[in-house]
Nucleic acid binder design. Structure first.
Lengths: 252, 252
DNA sequence: CGCGCGCTTTGATGCACATCAAGGCCCGCT
DNA sequence: AGCGGGCCTTGATGTGCATCAAAGCGCGCG
């Protein structure tokens, strides 16, 4: 197998910079689903002070790589990222997609080394949260400690859902489940639950769901034929959400 | 599909009791791989005080069930447990096996409700760690907070390994990986890395690895024929650990 | 001791998805 | 506008594991 080296492969895109993007946790539209959830405004200010913002990540750039020293966890402010591990024979296993308001990088805590890589699927703005500062702050802010425990726990349950999906569900069920997951995560951000643009390629979807590109494509075609979905390349419209739910055959 | 109701199904086996089993974290043989890791002896005493021990769980009894209120996480002192979710159509997805020294129940933190069930595969002694006490203690003991973050992170990376295994690896690779995982966890507890008794049935192995019983059985037979393993029902001897590693085709 | 049940093994067959192959489409670049 | 490469779709064929079936084995229990 050949290894393609692109510019993005060579360049770690995350470079903290002094530029002020006029964003802080207090005025961030996403703070109701991100870390500050349940914090008092005084507490939010303190959290805000440890968070570093930087110039946006371009499509294809890495936020961190498997094996990098772990320093921080990251919150997505805009754009989408995928997290993935590279298997010994060079294939990719996508372990999650991260949308605005979601936190990634927590798998690096256990060994102080990132256990996966993260890469921007489109231009993305990121908040970096240095972990040692977060730990210190957690000690004095019980709500923050609690909330971070909950976030990690949510990551565990999300992984368990994926495990079940991969192990027990058919190709149609897997794709339908992913569509429902994206739909509900959009809804949480007050975006359309039925009409959206997929930020990831068919290859990424396949890698996430344990399927080949061809199978993903065929499933989309079949779901379109059944008038459950309107698919135009990356533009998806869910025409019959109950139909998709019953096809997914799992509770979201 | 028929639902069998056994006595164990009806009986939640975990009943805290006053009986003193003469065990505490300070003298526990497992404290180097369990929670107290990296704590000072003063700290261990404090942790010890919040931990509740109880009469052992019998084979088949539940430690907790999906949907139960979440109160505590649990450490295995002896025996083995499996954690699993039940899919909407009634099938079981095993998400993990837990050996002595390991912690389970952390998936309940996010919603304050257990996201999976846990059941004893054999008689098991358990330490119950009430979560609110653990949280409070964590605030004043940075090492404990750090250690618990690391434990949760380890759970995440373990799940990611399973995701990759289910998505990318063949039946042989999956079974070989599980054998290596059990082997190294035994070694950590100073038990034989090459000779052990499987606490779980073929059905459980299949449910964990996304395979049917028949396939698991066939893989064991083939590995025996290749003289990698000696299999006598649940007694396993690894004859050629390098061979098993190369069959597993993944880094442990 | 021997019956019966649950667990495991082994074999025969079928199917969902992978693989191989080729053509179409979109979009950036010159 | 025209070229090229990456991404997506569709079709033909192959295969690893599931499913179906049945027999062996171990063990608890009457």
């Amino acid at each position: 197998m050949s290894i393609r080296v692109t510019q993005a492969d060579e360049d770690n895109g995350f470079k903290p910079c002094a530029h002020d993007y006029q964003v802080n946790c207090g005025n961030c539209r996403l703070n109701s689903i991100c870390l500050p959830l349940a914090l008092e405004s005084d507490d939010i200010k303190q959290l805000d002070e440890i968070i570093q913002r930087s110039k946006p990540l371009q499509k294809g750039q890495f936020l961190y790589r498997e094996g990098d020293d772990f320093q921080s966890v990251f919150a997505v402010r805009s754009g989408t990222l995928k997290a993935f591990r590279t298997t010994d024979d060079g294939r990719e296993q996508v372990t999650g997609f991260y949308f605005p308001g979601e936190i990634l990088g927590m798998d690096g805590i256990s060994k102080n080394i990132h256990a996966s890589s993260a890469r921007a699927l489109e231009t993305a703005a990121i908040c970096e949260i240095p972990f040692t500062s977060l730990e210190k702050l957690s000690s004095v802010m019980p709500n923050l400690q609690r909330h971070f425990f909950q976030l990690m726990s949510r990551e565990i349950t999300a992984d368990q859902l994926l495990i079940t999906l991969l192990s027990k569900n058919s190709a149609e069920e897997r794709v339908a489940s992913l569509m429902l997951s994206i739909s509900s995560r959009n809804a949480r951000r007050k975006l359309s639950a039925t009409k959206f643009r997929l930020p990831m390629s068919r290859v990424d979807i396949g890698n996430y769901l344990g399927l080949t590109v061809e199978t993903v494509s065929r499933v989309f075609s079949r779901m379109q034929k059944l008038e459950l979905l309107q698919v135009d390349n990356k533009e998806i419209e869910i025409l019959d959400i109950e139909g998709v739910r019953s096809l997914a055959n799992i509770s979201q």
